[in-house]
């Protein structure tokens, strides 16, 4: 594995190997001293052309836990448009001797372009609607902790499916792990064509019925009013995950959310903090999984 762009070319063995490393990283994170010297002397650049404090923090902390040096760049693609290009930015950073680029962009394919331009490892931290592989890995890791083997498990993903890289990457990875993925949302926020073998439905009940786990997606506020949807109330009425609706899933089915949460929009407020919520576990696992990804890409001879 030279880059982590998406899951093309992945098999279950590779996922299992990564998760094994992630479990070792979790043990490291449980220690009083949460740092290991593994990537001493390596440099990781987080390059975020679209703001995301959470993912950026998670990656930077993961890199620091492994003793890598971290440089970070933030700037919107639109401000870049005026002068410097994405390519210029990346090549400039590369000149500092960066070993891995963690890239977030609002356009699909930027990490793939970067991988063509750079010699360093490239990790996709979310590209447009396309993919967010580390999020999917941490979700699958968290689901495996909660449910065991995901083969044959029904996972319902609810919300703005159309614009969601999390939905796409989860459909791809959970499908690879044998889960049956259902994607539910209001019709204007559902893609017109299916992807990665996941099932699409506008009927929330159909997706939730006997689900082994439920994942609510973050919904952009601007899409709720005047955009693709009539109103926030309209969304809540149809698609908010409530106690009653969660009761359609299997007893005790866990609830996930990639964060940040719009409280009382995607999920009824009390549920988000309830015993079935794995939201904080996801954050914790996210760090371990990202450490594992950095380890697999960088704890070896440079390419």
């Amino acid at each position: 594995m030279r880059h982590l762009l998406d899951f093309s070319g992945w098999d279950r063995a590779r996922v299992a190997a990564l998760f094994k490393t992630a479990r070792a990283m979790k043990e490291v994170l449980s220690r009083p001293i949460k740092t290991v010297p593994t990537l001493k002397g390596r440099t990781v650049a987080t390059v975020f052309f679209e703001p995301s404090t959470r993912t950026k923090t998670s990656f930077e902390l993961a890199a620091k836990r492994l003793s890598a040096d971290v440089v970070s760049f933030s700037g919107s693609s639109s401000s870049l448009k005026k002068g410097e290009s994405i390519r210029d930015t990346l090549l400039t950073l590369a000149a500092y001797g960066v070993d891995a680029f963690v890239i977030r962009a609002d356009a699909a394919g930027v990490p793939h372009q970067a991988a063509r331009w750079l010699d360093a490892a490239v990790i996709n931290a979310g590209d447009g609607r396309r993919a967010h592989p580390t999020q999917a890995l941490l979700d699958a890791f968290t689901l495996e902790e909660a449910l065991g083997d995901l083969e044959g498990r029904k996972i319902a993903i609810v919300g703005d499916i159309l614009h969601s890289r999390v939905a796409r990457s989860n459909a791809e990875l959970l499908g690879l792990l044998g889960a049956e993925v259902w994607l539910a949302g209001p019709p204007p926020l559902l893609p017109r064509r299916p992807f990665f073998g996941a099932r699409l439905t506008a009927r929330l009940e159909e997706a939730l019925k006997d689900a082994d786990a439920v994942m609510a997606l973050r919904i952009q506020k601007e899409r709720l009013s005047g955009g693709r949807l009539p109103s926030e109330e309209d969304y809540r009425d149809g698609y908010q995950i409530t106690e009653d609706r969660l009761a359609l899933a299997k007893p005790g089915a866990p609830l996930l959310h990639p964060g940040p949460l719009n409280r009382d929009v995607e999920i009824e407020g009390t549920l988000a903090d309830g015993p079935r919520s794995l939201v904080l576990r996801q954050v914790e696992n996210g760090q371990a999984v990202r450490m594992a990804v950095l380890y697999h890409l960088l704890a070896r001879r440079a390419a």
Binding site: A17, K20, T21, R23, A24, M25, E27, V28, Y295, H296, L297, L298, A299, R300
Partner: peptide
């Protein structure tokens, strides 16, 4: 390749 990390 990065070697396998085992349990501590």
């Amino acid at each position: 390749h990065a070697p396998v990390v085992r349990e501590t």
